[in-house]
Design a protein around this nucleic acid. Structure first.
Lengths: 224, 224
DNA sequence: CTGTATCCATGGCGATACTG
DNA sequence: CAGTATCGCCATGGATACAG
């Protein structure tokens, strides 16, 4: 966090925020993560040592507050941190509009499922326990299959079969579901082009896109 | 610009924007700088080699466009770059509200005069050529004295005496004028406490704060 | 679960000087 | 005016293993 040697508020803000990973940690906190390993799931490629360092830095700066609640470390945003919402939103809108291209390295099934499960519209799901399986046919090994369960109004991701009844089975490549989730393409277009397939009774098949939805950024208008 | 390995638009945006100095260069372009040495004045502590590198990076990313106009290199923001205005604004607001403390290293007379001259309300100045001298009594040597001239509606900073008639003579320490400019303190309070002094005929003395004004960020409401 | 502790390589970036 | 060229440091952060 070297100083820019400028009195400008933008420079002072960036002294804190331009360090690698910092904004992404803030994003996770804004999305509701409060514990160390919860945060890690949102920034899986970040080393735990560095995450600790960033959390300490944000705490020193007054952006977050750390507390032990029932023996667990709990990180919460202060008012100062909460207001970074405007900054993260502006970045999200700009990134959505202007950085369309994703490299293969940007795709990550675990991260995708984690992101979907925490911000999909569960109120659209049936009241009963419901389970969907996802299969990414271009991802080899264990990371190619995932289960999404909504039980008692609580969403859950699994990388193993929980053993419940399957309501729908979805197959696509990783890029397709990522692009659908980001709103780069629509469910209907992807289904029509057979880039994604939903195997389920007709009524459920029609409902599933509404269960999963799209990320909040998907609603951002794209440049003409 | 190492990848974060995330499809999230915030992550993709930060891959470009979290590199040191990048946002400050964009800020300069948003404020109207278009040429290399003009940009340098806004980021004086940045090495020219690094500025070149950042400009190339921003060009590759599509944020700016470079052209030779009349044998001069000219950098302009594309639509993509123009929309970073929202991001820079959000950072400016947040920085203004929450990063109040300035270290001595954040103070820079040249930068302050440059910033004042390019965004002060010249329409408030007299029609005739008008000149003000600034003296920072805590800054030793040449950098302690500055002249601000508005002539034919065009503002100009000098670090030498242009030799015109002096309309007002302002004295303060560097921190005081910086804080006034940022809006951390008001002109009236600073004058009352003798933290700044204006030597001029009474009518002009009263008018000068309105001539200089405050930076646009000064209008941002501070947290209670 | 929530971190620490090392270690190491890389390359970013600061400083300075120079050029067409 | 608008950059190049070089150099070298040191801090950043990636990787991995381990601990209370």
């Amino acid at each position: 966090m070297t100083s820019y040697g400028q009195f400008c508020p933008v420079a002072k803000a960036m002294e804190l925020l331009d360090e690698r990973w910092t904004i992404l940690v803030v994003r996770e906190l804004l999305l509701g993560s409060r514990h160390f390993n919860e945060l890690r799931r949102g920034v899986p490629k970040m080393s735990p040592a560095l995450l600790t360092k960033r959390l300490r830095g944000l705490e020193r700066a007054g952006v977050i507050r750390r507390a032990e609640v029932g023996g667990r470390s709990t990180y919460t945003l202060t008012d100062m941190g909460q207001e970074l919402h405007q900054v993260v939103m502006a970045l999200s809108v700009w990134g959505t509009r202007w950085i369309g291209e994703l490299g293969d390295a940007d795709l990550d099934p675990h991260l995708l499922m984690w992101d979907i499960h925490r911000s999909m519209p569960i109120e659209a799901w049936p009241r009963r326990r419901t389970m969907i399986r996802f299969r990414f046919h271009d991802v080899i090994g264990k990371a190619g299959t995932w289960w999404l369960v909504v039980d008692a109004g609580r969403p859950q991701v699994c990388d193993f079969d929980p053993g419940y009844d399957l309501d729908a089975d979805i197959a696509s490549d990783l890029r397709t579901l990522t692009e659908i989730w980001r709103g780069d393409i629509g469910w209907q277009d992807a289904l029509r082009d057979n880039r994604i397939e939903i195997d389920a009774p007709a009524a459920i098949s029609r409902a599933v896109p509404g269960w999963i939805g799209q990320s909040t950024a998907a609603a951002v208008a794209r440049p003409a």
